[in-house]
């Protein structure tokens, strides 16, 4: 069974067709990079996976989208429950104006089943996973807003991990960060791959090449090319892919 499987997925915003007949499948514990010029539908595809597009007026979708073999757009699926299995990290860090600790505990408190001691354990675990623990362990009560941009983004990753999703979505998670923070997060993605399946949108082809196992190239709402990252950059099949990865349009 695939972790993620899209079957002829099309998306409209009102009358505008943002995705056109996209099909792809992704194995467990793989990193998938979505690349393509801006406006080509990368975020749209990513946000399909945790049903974040549901809130957009005029949004309509056709086709089937399966996660762990389950049709996530079937009426029985509660998007709120889905999002506990599918974590998301956004382009700009979005720390809540709470303490570092409360940020990471946020998703855990929603479920109302854990004792404070368990929450504390999972907060520490998540912060360690996000490679942030050593930097903040003495300041857990401090406001998350006081952290640097790179730390804030790792906090957001920790916050997502604390809920223990199996699929992690990242929408250009490093585009607002400096090179050192970017390197840290890429390293983190490498580590997380052992336990998570990750779908990451990036406009940076080197990044796609560095962090991903699979790469999907979108262009004007269509999935032009999809394959193993190794082959993708050394031996693209489509002329449009070649033009894009050699930087001749964008």
């Amino acid at each position: 069974m695939y972790k993620v499987e899209a079957r002829s997925v099309s998306v409209w915003y009102g009358s505008y067709k943002a995705l056109d007949d996209v099909s792809l499948s992704l194995e467990r514990n793989q990193v998938l990079a979505l690349i393509g010029p801006s406006g080509c539908g990368k975020s749209t595809f990513l946000r399909l996976l945790n049903r974040m597009n549901d809130y957009i007026e005029g949004f309509r979708m056709e086709g089937k989208l399966l996660i762990d073999g389950e049709d996530i757009y079937s009426p029985e699926v509660d998007p709120v429950h889905l999002r506990r299995r599918v974590g998301m990290v956004f382009q700009k860090p979005t720390p809540f104006p709470f303490s570092i600790y409360e940020n990471v505990a946020y998703g855990l408190r929603l479920q109302n089943r854990l004792k404070e001691s368990q929450i504390r354990e999972r907060v520490e675990q998540a912060l360690r996973q996000a490679a942030l623990w050593d930097e903040v362990k003495d300041n857990l009560k401090k406001s998350a807003l006081a952290l640097s941009g790179g730390q804030q983004q790792r906090l957001c990753i920790a916050r997502a991990l604390a809920v223990r999703p199996s699929l992690l979505l990242m929408d250009e998670p490093t585009s607002a960060l400096d090179p050192i923070s970017t390197a840290k997060i890429e390293e983190l993605i490498h580590e997380l791959r052992q336990n998570y399946t990750i779908v990451i949108v990036t406009h940076n082809m080197q990044q796609a090449a560095r962090v991903s196992d699979m790469t999907a190239f979108f262009y004007m709402g269509r999935l032009i090319e999809y394959g193993r990252t190794k082959d993708f950059f050394t031996n693209p099949k489509h002329p449009e892919t070649l033009r894009y990865i050699t930087g001749r349009f964008g």
């Binding site: 945790n50 974040m52 709120v80 979005t94 809540f96 946020y106 998703g107 997502a160 809920v163």
Partner: peptide, 26 residues
């Protein structure tokens, strides 16, 4: 900021939880 509301929803909060825990306090 809509980004905070989205972040909350993304963590598995319902719309009401998002309102009570994020939007209202802020």
């Amino acid at each position: 900021p809509a980004s905070l509301k989205e972040a909350s929803l993304g963590l598995g909060a319902s719309e009401m939880q998002t309102f009570l825990r994020i939007t209202l306090p802020i």
